[in-house]
Every structure is written in structure tokens, then in C-alpha cells.
Design a binder for these strands. Structure first.
Lengths: 338, 338
DNA sequence: ACTTTGCGAGAAAACGTTTTCTGAAAGCGT
DNA sequence: ACGCTTTCAGAAAACGTTTTCTCGCAAAGT
């Protein structure tokens, strides 16, 4: 049995005894059931207060069959994007009395499914942020995870809503903006190949190029982080591009920093755009032109969908996309003469 | 009773029936108890696999009296410092099979105690990050929270370890560094009054001034965020200080940005330091001189202490302080010629 | 006065595990 | 062959709630 420590926490039985009633009555009072004589109810409340009784939440969960907790699986807790998602989910869920259990896969692909399944076992549902796993694996997992909501990953699975930013549209708008400034030679610093949002950007750019035959686009493998952006400087300069579309703001900022060190003028000699509009983007020098993704709202929307699924709402919207908005700042300018 | 949905999840009873043994035996097998005949154990494992059985974790928690979960309460999930703490705690705990439940008080003082107590009810212990509540309130709460670990807040309470960065020492080292560059007129852009770490900085600076009578220090009320740093530009310039110690990196970055917009040269006309060394600090222009706080390590250490308390180790270190390290970068320079 | 209705509270089952206790069978020495 | 220990598995209690069912009692209706 549960290892009896010297002193047990005060339970419902203690309150019942103290108030001279049964467990059932105490439970009823604690849950605001009105079929209890007000006099007795008051006595129970006083006993509970005196004994500092608070219902054991594990016991409650067992009886009720729910934990009032949802799991959120993120690829990297160190990434501002996922931090913002997490915050959105957490705050929205908190408003409805739900708590969030976090699981950080540290970008280890093989951990993702395990963490998700384990989280589901403890929680009423799971939110998967930008899962890296394959479509097939995700499909398999979906039914086991069932109250499941996806962020930045769309897979047509029954009962699983998904929220995503329209990266394809966003990157096209950025490219359009750059071309409007006169740029003809663009470079795309791509993200991780297994990332669905990278795929959307690649596809969006492919479409853009198809519609603008006069524009030349090079794709260079980049990454997701500052450091990776910083390291890309040489290759960017060698490419001869006059404008760079970075995978995200972090990469753009690393690039900006590297260019600054090399004495390359931004936007005088080269223009740089990011993606996401993380809080820092407006404070870089020069301030970063980027596509704003309402990522915290995505998180909040994820909770709303989750709530709907938990309540077994029939009409829960499945796929919702949020459109990024180009935010023009100082890191982009007219194509240099020459 | 728990509202019976149409299909129940497969439980230990199903496996028992399928394998032709008792609940107890299944439980023993699942928990790696070796007092089971290997032949039977194998049969049970096969049944479990076939039925896709996974132990219900709420049931387990109830029987075992533990949830393998700890709560982490932070003042603001949007703050990089707390994000880093959270990440440290979460990753360290995950290595030991524990999960983290998050509670974000959104800097609402009155929510803190409630969230902490509620988290404790669901978890085996609570980590409080930089609690804003008063010492008295914290003392009161401590026993109810008991497996409790504090980050960036030291209160002498039995059984509750605390991890903190030595902000007093750090800010003195930054001030020493600035004075070494010739600065005599310093300004401190302070943080929230109820923050213990702000108090440590104030005290540290007071000591510094006492030891350096020739140095003039002004304290201006600042804040914790970018925006607040950005808004302080006028007051900083009006102060006539040649070097500014910002409460943290965020404030320093906001200030840097504001100064840039005003065409003020950093560090030519004024030097700026931050605090924390958040990942972005090295990428600002100019790169930010700051005091590096190993904040993720603080989080990891917090878990180690928590683990020790959970295991009822007698010899658990109570108060541990981490020393910040001055990281000199480009935002500081010699005092301008007057 | 006797049955019916209704209200409120207690007994007990249920949620899904773990673990103690008990008992049966098997192994061993004499 | 008998009694002892040992091994292993099942029955049942325990964890702390919620909820259904039941029942007593009082008020109301005939």
C-alpha cells in the first residue's frame, strides 16, 4: 500500500467525522450540491476550514475520470516560437481551470511519440506543437492520443483540429515586397527539412518563382538558430543575392549580426527578412522586416479547440489557418545600384 | 460514478482476464517484480501488448501516493529569464522521469499563493520562481507547500532549499568594470520594487557607492521589459550619466534601441550594461556587456534539490548562490571626453 | 388514520491501481 | 513418507474521492 508516512494528509473522512456526517455529504458540500441542509452544509464548511481540508486531486481525478490537465509537446523549450505557443495555450487553458503539463522533446525525433503518449496517459488531451514525426506516424498515434490538437502541422485526421500559420502565403508576401523594392536575386535560407512549416515556405516560394520568371531564387540550407544564421554569412555573400529570406527571425538576426561584423551595410548592400516577428525583431539594428505570425493567438486558439473536443462539441472547426502579415522595418531597402 | 462512455479504456482487469491471471499478477509483471514465474510473466506481457494496455496513471498515483510531477510557478511565461529557468527545471526533471506542470501568475501578486497551493495539490512538490509575495506570506505558505524549492528568493525556512544568483555581487562587478573604464557618473535603471533580485542589486550598489565615494550614482525607476527600457531614454539622457546599469538585458536592449533612434552613439557617448546574458544579448548592436547568470543551471539545480527533498535526504544543501560573471562586449567603453 | 410524496443523508459501489496477507503447492532433508 | 521451508499467485484491502441507490422521516393528500 501507499507507504504510510507518520502523518496522513487530512482527508474527506476526517472532515466527515469532525462534522458528524458521512463522506458523501462532505463531498456534496464541497462540490456545491444544493441538496444538503444549509445548517449541515455550514457545519461541514466550518469543519473543512478548521481542518484545512482540501480535496485530494488524484482521488477526484480517479472518480471523475478527468484530470483538468492537458499536455503540450514542444520540439524545443528554448525556441521563442514554442515559448510563445506554450504561453498562449497555458494562459487560455488557465482561464478555464485547466493546467498544462509540458514535454520538451529537445528536437529528438524519436522522443516525440513517446512523450506524447506518456503525456496523454496523465492528461485529458494533448497539444502537439510542430511535430517533426512523419505523417504516417502521426496518423497512427492520433487515435491513441485522441483529444488531440495540432499546431503548425495539418494532417487530415478525424476529430483532430489543427491551427497553423500560412507560411506559404507569408513568404510569398515577403518575396513580393522585396521584388517591389527592385530585388531580382533572392536567397532563401531554409529550415529543417522535416519541419512542415519549412515545407510550406519552400512550396510558397516555388509558386512565387513560377509566377515571376524574372526573379532568380537560390535556396541555401540554413537552420533554426542564431548561430546557424551567423554561420551562413559567407555563403550568403558568395551567392550574390541582393536580398535574403531567412527561415525565421532568429536566423535573420544571426545573419544581421554576422553581416554587421563583416561591415556589410544592411539594407544598403543587402536586404534581410525574418519570419515570426518575435518580440526582439523590432529592436534589432536595423529593425527586422518580417512576417508577423500571431503565435500566442495560435496557442490560445489551440486551447479553444481542445476545449470544444473535450466537451464533445459536434461542430468543432478542424483546420484553421492564420495569415501572417508583412511588417516592413529597416532591414530591407531598395536594391543597390550596380 | 465516472460517466461511463460507450467504450472503456482497457484496464488491468482486461489483461488479467485475457492472460488468465489475477490483477495482482499483472501489476507485478508491469512493475518488474521478479517473484513471478517467467512463463506467466511472458504470457502477461503478450496479453498486455495485444490489448495495448498501459497502466492508468491516475490509478497508479492514488495507490502509490505520488504523481511524478512537480509544479513550477513563474511570474511571467513571456520573460526569457523565467523561460530559461523553466527549461532547466523541466529538462532536469525529465531525466529522472518527472514531468512539470506550469503555473503562470502573469505578474499578478494575489494569484501567486493560490496557484502555488493549487499546483501542490496536484504535484509532489513545487518550485517557486522569483516569488513576488511578501516574506511573511511565503513563510506561511511554505509548510503547506512542503516539498518546496525557491529560485531567486531566499527565505530561511526549514527543509526548503533555495537557489539564487548573487545579483548584489554581479552588479558590483559591473559597476567596478565601468569605473575601471573611467566612468564616475552612473545611473541604475531599477526593476520592480517587490522583486527580491532588485533589492539585491540596490543593496549591492549601495555598498559599491559606499566603497567608492568619488562615484555618483542615480537610481531611476525602470521596469523589466523592452518597452520600459525604450521609454527611459529621455530620463537617462537628462540624468547626465555616462554609463547606465540596466535592471536586466531586456531593459538594456530597449534602451539601446531608443538611444540608436535618437542618434546617440553607444559606447561613444554613453555605456550600457544589462544583466542575465540572455541568448540575444550577444547579438545586439553593439553587443551587450552584461553579467551572465547561469539561469538554466539554476533551474537544473532546483530540480536536484527537489529530488533530494522528495527522497527525504537528510543532507540537502539549503541555500546555494551562483555567481554571475561579467561578460564585456561592445556596449561599454571609455568615458567620453567631457 | 393511512397511504403517498418528497426531501435529505448515509451506505456502498465505483474509478484503476499497488501491496499485504494468506494459502496452496512444490522442494528438501531426514 | 513426513514435516519443514520456500516460492508463487490469488483474494482483498487500501489509496481518496464521487455518485447511485436506498431508506428514514416528515409533510401532505384522501
Amino acid at each position: 500500500m501507499a507507504k504510510r508516512s507518520t502523518t496522513r494528509r487530512t482527508g474527506i473522512a476526517d472532515v466527515a467525522k469532525h462534522a458528524g456526517v458521512s463522506h458523501a455529504t462532505v463531498s456534496r458540500v464541497m462540490n456545491g450540491n444544493f441538496t444538503v441542509d444549509p445548517v449541515i452544509a455550514q457545519r461541514v464548511r466550518e469543519s473543512a476550514a478548521e481542518l484545512k481540508y482540501y480535496p485530494n486531486s488524484v482521488g477526484r481525478s480517479l472518480a471523475l475520470g478527468k484530470t483538468d490537465t492537458i499536455g503540450v509537446v514542444v520540439p524545443d523549450l528554448g525556441n521563442p516560437t514554442f515559448q510563445a505557443m506554450l504561453r498562449g495555450v497555458s494562459r487560455a487553458a488557465a482561464k478555464d481551470g485547466y493546467r498544462v503539463l509540458i514535454a520538451d522533446s529537445s528536437e529528438v525525433l524519436s522522443e516525440e511519440a513517446i512523450l506524447a503518449a506518456e503525456a496523454r496517459r496523465r492528461c485529458d488531451g494533448v497539444v502537439l506543437c510542430a511535430p517533426r514525426m512523419s505523417d504516417a506516424e502521426l496518423q497512427d498515434l492520433a487515435s491513441a492520443l485522441h483529444p488531440l490538437v495540432l499546431i503548425n502541422r495539418t494532417v487530415p485526421i478525424e476529430n483532430t483540429p489543427s491551427l497553423s500559420a500560412n507560411y506559404g502565403q507569408g513568404i510569398q508576401e515577403l518575396a513580393t515586397y522585396l521584388v517591389g523594392l527592385g530585388h531580382k536575386r533572392l536567397a532563401f535560407l531554409s529550415g529543417p527539412p522535416q519541419s512542415a512549416s519549412n515545407r510550406l515556405r519552400v512550396d510558397g516560394l516555388a509558386q512565387f518563382v513560377a509566377e515571376h520568371p524574372d526573379v532568380e531564387l537560390q535556396t541555401l540550407s540554413g537552420g533554426v538558430s542564431f548561430a546557424e544564421g551567423h554561420e551562413s554569412v559567407e555563403r550568403i555573400l558568395a551567392s550574390g543575392a541582393t536580398a535574403v529570406l531567412a527561415f525565421n527571425d532568429l536566423v535573420a538576426m544571426g545573419l544581421l549580426s554576422g553581416l554587421h561584423e563583416r561591415g556589410v551595410d544592411v539594407p544598403g548592400e543587402i536586404s534581410v527578412t525574418g519570419f515570426d516577428d518575435i518580440p526582439f525583431a523590432r529592436y534589432t539594428t536595423p529593425p527586422l522586416t518580417t512576417a508577423a505570425v500571431p503565435i500566442t493567438e495560435l496557442g490560445e486558439a489551440a486551447w479553444e479547440r481542445m476545449k470544444a473536443v473535450l466537451q464533445e462539441d459536434e461542430a468543432v472547426a478542424l483546420a484553421t489557418t492564420f495569415s501572417p502579415r508583412v511588417v516592413a522595418r529597416g532591414s530591407t531597402g531598395p536594391v543597390p545600384l550596380g
